[in-house]
Design a binder for these strands. Structure first.
Lengths: 282, 282
DNA sequence: CAACCGAAGCATAAATTATTGACCGGCATT
DNA sequence: AATGCCGGTCAATAATTTATGCTTCGGTTG
């Protein structure tokens, strides 16, 4: 039970001095943090031993114990009241706001991608990893995330072909077949060349997975499986940050799912991580 | 700020004994309630004074202050995590946990980089953007973020030279001079070639900014300004995700600061964004 | 190799907390 | 009304806990 509730409930059966202590604690609980039993006694003009006896009567081990408990109680209470206040009066200009916006974008993105889809994508990639190839492409800023994800898949022992120009990718794809997977990253999903590549890949009976904004876009209509990202902001220099965070988060989730998908991919990953560690820190 | 997050974030630059204290506190935070500094010391087989000094180094008034703060943190966590546990078990297995871990890493990273440093870095880059060049290098996975940041600086109209191999970068740097800035990305900060480049750059009177893990590492000692990243997880496939999230968050914050730094960089950015938009969606 | 720096422990001072015993006033019993 | 009991309070002090000064030791720098 909260120490404050307990104090209040017993207040009526207390002696005069005890009641004064009780009142002080109830009204200035937050000050208690910086008060020793002696200081509290001074503040009330009573003896320190009275304070200690007071705490013991209430069932606490002693003064520090009461103090600690009151601290917990305040923390619990502050926790449900203060956040609204804190976010409203956030002095810390951009940093914390940015953080909140990113969280929102990430959460929104998590919500619009059904677990089944994620599961299906993970399985498709895993399958391609066992018996085929994974092709990955992204242009411009999208390339950065394509590159990153490609690297991670490689670490899992999945054969990955990464390109950042359409010509090479077209050439590479000519060896694709059933059981292979193409991952296309395109924020707006309306780059004609990517559309052509996706179509070509489908003709060769490969599975197309797109990662785009959550809009109706040409690329997405070509997909066997479509992952989507949600991120919006009025400020033009903020929006890309949100998009990238949300995208990254989506990919992170996918990656974790792959890692935890059993198999011996886990072991493979560890081995690869170790090997890389050695390479980078000679 | 949560004392536990703070402890975790500084864990890396602690001595052996301090790290043992940190680990104990992180893992047995609830037990702390019944431990005096002496008991804690006994439990770890170290001296009581080490415990007290540990708390003071972290910025607490003393051991009781730490204890009280940890108590608050636990109370807060118990209060909002229990409800979250319910949401976590509604199907979305790993996603929500991952999200929380990422948030923690981002928060810890925000805490260990003083606003002054961030400000100074932003100004250094802005200055170099007006009258000099910004060199950026990162190897392996670090390259991904180096590349991303380089792209963003370009959008702001800042002349940026990005490389992902040491040979080219060395060559490029030979034209560097005072007023230029070198940004080095290196998670562990102990790649000899990067150290050489940084030293060489300093000789040419340029300003070196490093971005590394929050550890004592050779590269960091060469920096005029050092940004640091905190991210930890036992799972080897999670930790990189956290590192990258935290790093990205740090860079996002920096970028926003640059965007909001006045000047006409803002206008420049808008123009560039438009132009790129046209290029990518013909 | 000397000088230095920081980390850790020991011893001890300082502080905080808990207990003891004395005193006082109210109140019931004689 | 006197006596004895009892809860409450406090000052003094014991016990515990925390903080600090000093020393040593291992590693680093010049």
């Amino acid at each position: 039970m909260s120490p404050l509730v307990k104090i209040r409930s017993e207040r009526d059966q207390m002696s005069a001095v005890e009641r004064r202590i009780a009142d002080f604690v109830l009204e200035n609980a937050q000050l208690l943090r910086d008060y020793s039993s002696q200081q509290l006694a001074n503040a009330l003009g009573i003896s320190q031993s009275s304070v200690v006896k007071f705490t013991q009567k209430l069932g606490f081990k002693g003064y520090p114990d009461l103090k600690y408990s009151v601290g917990e109680a305040i923390a619990r209470a502050d926790n449900s009241d203060a956040p609204q206040l804190a976010t409203a009066s956030d002095g810390d200009a951009g940093g914390s706001t940015l953080w909140r916006r990113k969280s929102e974008a990430e959460e929104a993105t998590r919500l619009i991608n059904p677990p089944e889809t994620l599961q299906a994508v993970a399985e498709a990639i895993a399958l391609a990893g066992r018996s085929g190839k994974v092709f990955i492409i992204g242009l411009g800023e999208d390339d950065i995330y394509a590159r990153n994800f490609a690297l991670r898949l490689s670490l899992l022992g999945i054969l990955t072909v990464h390109n950042f120009d359409t010509a090479r990718m077209t050439a590479n794809i000519s060896v694709a077949g059933a059981g292979d997977v193409l991952l296309v990253f395109s924020e707006h999903g309306n780059h004609p060349a990517l559309g052509k590549i996706a179509r070509y890949f489908r003709e060769r009976r490969g599975q197309v997975i797109t990662v785009t904004r959550h809009t109706a876009n040409p690329l997405r209509t070509l997909a066997d499986l479509a992952l989507v990202v949600s991120a919006h902001d009025e400020l033009p220099y903020i929006q890309p940050l949100l998009y990238q965070s949300a995208l990254q988060h989506l990919l992170d989730g996918l990656f974790v799912q792959l890692c935890e998908g059993g198999d011996d991919r886990h072991a493979q990953l560890l081995a690869n991580l170790d090997r890389i560690q050695l390479m980078l820190e000679p």
